[in-house]
């Protein structure tokens, strides 16, 4: 497996946002000339797994090693992360109607581990009319087999990833997602691939000197969460501490202790539940 290394670009705050919501959108990060070249390559290789992309240096350099995306992947997976082994293209002829279709990809686990990342790349403008992928923020913390999601349809707070050409979005592998109805005509390409962790998890990203763990906000801010607020905060904090390689220092004591009431507790100068020796 080929590996890659670069400078991390995400801060603690951005890492925590990823732990909370399970995805990160980077709009228009791939140049237009590369997007056009990718589109032409897709036309010439219309199969579902156009792995010949991996032999193209321009694709590897400009897409798989795209600086903003690679910096985010590097932040989440650590140094010398493994490059994609296969490339998929969800190439669809529009218009098409989609009802239901929610799923998480095969092999999904609800663990705090982030050992691989699922990445989507739109080489063309993908507005709502072209049926962008819809994701359910925070669903990587929800346990449910895809077989028991098939009746689901409209989900409040789900997000359609409509985006300009050259956009890349990075997700926790287990996030719930689905294709959506496309009302426009034409072919839509959506390139999908996976990066792999090779290094042990560590706080190896951009360190904000003002960051304080006791002040970190792990709540999603949803007015009517699907789960208890403390559980939402706990799951996000657990994933964040796993990424830091410090999960063993954390024991959730429940109640309104950290991480559920981090900001309020710190304001009073007392933070029960805060992992010892961590900042």
């Amino acid at each position: 497996m080929k590996t890659y290394n670069c400078k991390p670009t995400l801060t603690d705050h951005e890492i925590i946002e990823f732990c909370k919501y399970g995805y990160l959108m980077l709009e228009e990060v791939v140049p237009d000339e590369i997007n056009e070249r990718v589109m032409a390559f897709c036309d010439a290789h219309p199969e579902g797994n156009p792995n010949d992309f991996l032999k193209e240096a321009w694709f590897v350099d400009q897409v798989l090693c795209n600086a903003p995306a690679a910096g985010a992947v590097r932040s989440l997976l650590g140094r010398d992360y493994g490059m994609p082994l296969t490339i998929s293209n969800h190439r669809v002829h529009c218009p098409r109607e989609i009802n239901g279709g929610w799923h998480c990809d095969d092999g999904s686990q609800r663990a705090p581990n982030v050992d691989y990342l699922q990445v989507f790349y739109y080489p063309q403008a993908t507005p709502l009319e072209m049926g962008p992928t819809e994701v359910l923020p925070g669903s990587h913390h929800l346990s449910m087999s895809s077989h028991f999601m098939k009746h689901l349809d409209s989900i409040v707070d789900a997000r359609k990833t409509a985006a300009p050409a050259g956009s890349i979005f990075i997700t926790v592998y287990s996030i719930w997602h689905r294709a959506t109805t496309a009302t426009a005509a034409g072919i839509r390409n959506l390139i999908k691939y996976t990066y792999w962790r090779t290094a042990a998890p560590a706080r190896d990203w951009v360190i904000d000197p003002d960051f304080r763990l006791e002040n970190a906000d792990f709540a999603t801010g949803s007015p009517e969460p699907r789960r208890d607020w403390s559980r939402v905060c706990h799951d996000a904090a657990r994933m964040y501490l796993w990424l830091r390689g410090e999960l063993n220092n954390y024991e959730w004591i429940g109640g309104l202790a950290w991480p559920a009431s981090a900001t309020a507790a710190h304001a009073r100068g007392f933070c029960p539940g805060l992992p010892a020796d961590l900042t």
Partner: peptide, 27 residues
């Protein structure tokens, strides 16, 4: 799909089958 077991609790999700067909709903 509701936020709690109470009948008054807010809806989190919804699917509708009418006349033997799935009816698209807004999110």
């Amino acid at each position: 799909q509701a936020a709690s077991t109470a009948l008054e609790s807010p809806v989190l999700g919804m699917s509708l089958y009418a006349n033997g067909r799935r009816i698209p709903l807004p999110s």
